[in-house]
Design a protein around this nucleic acid. Structure first.
Lengths: 192, 192
DNA sequence: GGCGATCCATACTCAAGCGTATGGAAAAGA
DNA sequence: TCTTTTCCATACGCTTGAGTATGGATCGCC
């Protein structure tokens, strides 16, 4: 009967609300973040919510901070363990391309950049990732003035792909078509 | 006193509402499209609106159709007049990069892809543009199986750039920094 | 096993925004 | 000029969703 994973939790914590909020953001967007809807989904009422949070914005802020801290930094962390710098970028692209969940919140926040609370978070996250690409490209042998622009181009391609194929349903590449696209992207963007 | 360009129009037409709607969408997003706000901006009240349109969604639909027909097809039209196919793509990139207004509606609609009315419009527009890039890359000498993926990559980079530098305020490239990025993009994506 | 702290339900208020009803003004035709 | 069509204002109803007030339930603890 209950939508969450733990079907019957007796009491709720603030973290439960934040996690539920992130889930709702992931598959319905920031605009759908309503307290009564969330409460229904958690099997409680507004009374519970306003004990944990002072306002709706407070929940959004807490959820965003939580996402930035816990849910977001995993991807790049694994990559840094790859020894050969020239293998790092292709491996990053292939891994990122075959995961779905981690991108869903990011894609949703991308569509909420008019909201003042999400802008700084997205600015920080995007900047960190672009910086990572920048150093990766330099370590792969690209001259610094090229590396920064290549990093921008790469990350823009990532963001655009999210919008076009994730949110919008553009011709929905088939599995092998998708792999071909990824390999083409690697061949085009990564220096031989 | 009046916000629009024509300060005192005695009567309004449906097209006036559609144009105003596109303007509001361009700089505040689809979510900000409210009839009373629009009416204030046009110097009238709701009574006027509901004479021209049956509902708010009807206005949105009409505005989207208007945008798809009139406001959108200009960019690609100019490019097709360039004789040398190998010069077409660099010229397209440079022109697109130095215009602002035509992208504002597209960027706004990109953030409203959860709305059922905008999805088909954006799907058609994005598909047309990607097709254009596809044939342009083939005419520039790329083998067909590469051309389609290069077109996807290029358009994804465009969309991502819109989100990152337009909507989000990422480190706001300076004028020459921006030009360097464009030239780098041309050098990277367009076959020599 | 009682008691303070924690968590939640119920019942409200309030504001925003869509849509409707109706009458009046202004243009267009005759 | 007089009537008809076109355009708009005012005043309403209705729904949604945020936030508040208050009392009840449950947990931790002594």
């Amino acid at each position: 009967m209950n939508a969450s994973s733990k079907p019957e939790r007796t009491r709720l914590s603030a973290e439960d609300w934040e996690e539920a909020a992130l889930g709702l953001i992931a598959d319905q967007g920031v605009g759908a973040l309503a307290v009564e809807a969330l409460a229904r989904q958690l099997g409680v009422t507004k009374g519970s919510f306003y004990w944990h949070f002072r306002t709706r914005e407070a929940l959004l802020l807490a959820a965003l901070e939580r996402w930035e801290q816990y849910g977001e930094r995993e991807v790049l962390g694994q990559i840094e363990t790859i020894a050969d710098p020239r293998e790092r970028l292709p491996e990053l692209f292939r891994r990122v391309a075959h995961e779905l969940r981690p991108h869903r919140v990011y894609a949703a926040l991308l569509k909420a950049l008019d909201h003042p609370l999400v802008v700084p978070v997205m600015a920080r996250v995007s900047q960190r990732r672009t910086d990572f690409l920048n150093t990766a490209y330099r370590e792969a042998g690209l001259p610094p003035e090229d590396a920064i622009n290549r990093a921008r181009l790469t990350y823009a391609a990532y963001v655009g792909f999210l919008q076009l194929n994730f949110t919008l349903g553009l011709p929905r590449l088939g599995h092998d078509e998708f792999d071909a696209y990824i390999e083409h992207m690697i061949a085009t963007l990564i220096p031989a």
